[in-house]
Simulated scan of single mutants.
Amino acid sequence: MSYKNFPMVPRVIFGRGSFNQLSEILAPKRLSIHAPFIFLVDDVFKGNAWLTSRIPLSYEDKIVFVSTIKEPTTIQVDDLVEDIILTTKALPSGIIGIGGGSVLDLAKAVSIMLTNEGEAKDYQGWDLVKNEAIYHVGIPTISGTGAEVSRTTVLIGPEKKLGINSDFTPFDQVILDSELTKDVPTDQWFYTGMDCYIHCIESLTGTYLNTFSETYGNMALELCKEVFLENNLTKTESEEKLMMASWHGGMSIAYSQVGVAHAMSYALAFLLGVKHGIGNCIVFDHLEEFYPEGVTLFKAMKQQHNITLPQGICANLSDADFDKMISITLNLVPLWENALGKNWKTIITPKKLKELYQKM
């Protein structure tokens, strides 16, 4: 039997205020004064001097503000890469992503596409990347997606929503500074935190489960319970614990897979543009049949934080729309295998999927 030899993030720094060490981390990585560092920053920080004034710019370094109103797309990656190539004198010294999962995924994808030919859509899938990415750093400003630690970068392409899943995708350096998450709005905090919680439930109940995934998954799950169900944490403790839950949740997926909620929410994102965290929540709310204990706990968390999920998002869809979503969802074979085993096609049929989507 051959085992997958996965890469991990080789360097990580953790602690409140650790963002201030970015300058000393990047200095030895500069290739020349003409090879800039490009900072991809979530545009919610536009005009936020508390964060942007601490980004260490020198020579021809630049900040590119990135809109995250929609899920990241392969076209967005191609446009960013083209802009960098046209406006820099040399290949950048590195790409630094500062933001949530969308920005971190864009940073990973751009760093890959600067050294690989063609378009980002050509690399959606498993192990299609040929050349090592340029140096890239991930700095999350919201916790839950696990994008800071995963070997994938999830993008919406012309045909599908699928990650560039490769050994060259993980960051070379991650900075976990929970202070950067202090201003996240409650609903966004919940949806993204639930992405982590749902990772854990899907990983821990899946057929791909092994001790590696289980150990990280259990740790992340316990942290999620502390953050979302207990009332005795300070804001700082809550932020630090959720940041570590996100890290461990991302690690638990490395050797396993996600499941039904992710498979179905990918199609909601592709067709309706529903953001990943809230999409997972909308789907998971209806999955008692597959994850009875997990969904019960989810509903308790939802109630505790007064979260109301959107209803009826699939109410006006045509049969063609449903067919497109079902086709996207059923193509995610590893997710279904993990969730339901080798015979998953006998359990989850197009008719069954349509009925589930119609509830949303």
Rank of each mutant, 00 (worst) to 15 (best):
F270I: 00
K342A: 05
L86V: 12
I134L: 10
E119C: 12
P350F: 06
N306A: 12
G47M: 03
I75K: 14
G15K: 13
I38Y: 02
G17H: 15
F37S: 08
G47F: 00
M264D: 07
D323E: 02
T186H: 14
G341E: 00
L209Y: 02
H286C: 04
E293S: 10
I134S: 12
P170H: 14
D167V: 09
D167F: 08
V81Q: 06
R16M: 15
T68N: 10
T115H: 11
A35G: 15
F39Q: 01
L221R: 13
F168R: 02
A267Q: 03
I84F: 05
A269F: 00
V283G: 03
T215C: 12
P185D: 11
S111V: 03
I348Q: 07
G294E: 01
I142Y: 10
E117R: 14
P350S: 07
T349F: 01
P140T: 13
D43P: 05
I307N: 13
K302H: 07
D42R: 09
D79C: 01
G217H: 15
A254G: 05
C281S: 14
I313L: 09
E82L: 11
L221I: 10
I75G: 03
P7W: 01
E337H: 08
E119G: 06
F14C: 14
T141P: 04
F298V: 08
K62C: 13
D183A: 12
S18F: 14
L104R: 12
F190Y: 12
E117W: 04
V260H: 10
S166V: 06
V110M: 00
G273D: 05
V258M: 11
V9Y: 09
T52N: 03
M219E: 12
D323V: 00
D195C: 11
V227R: 14
M360L: 15
A90G: 05
K241M: 08
A109S: 08
I348A: 11
V258A: 11
Q188G: 10
L297M: 13
I112R: 08
I85T: 12
I348M: 14
R30L: 08
C281M: 05
W247G: 07
H34V: 10
S58P: 01
A35W: 09
R30S: 13
S246L: 10
Q303N: 13
Y255C: 06
I13E: 15
L233I: 03
E24N: 12
T205Y: 01
I175S: 08
R54P: 02
D321F: 05
V44W: 09
K359F: 05
F39G: 04
A245V: 14
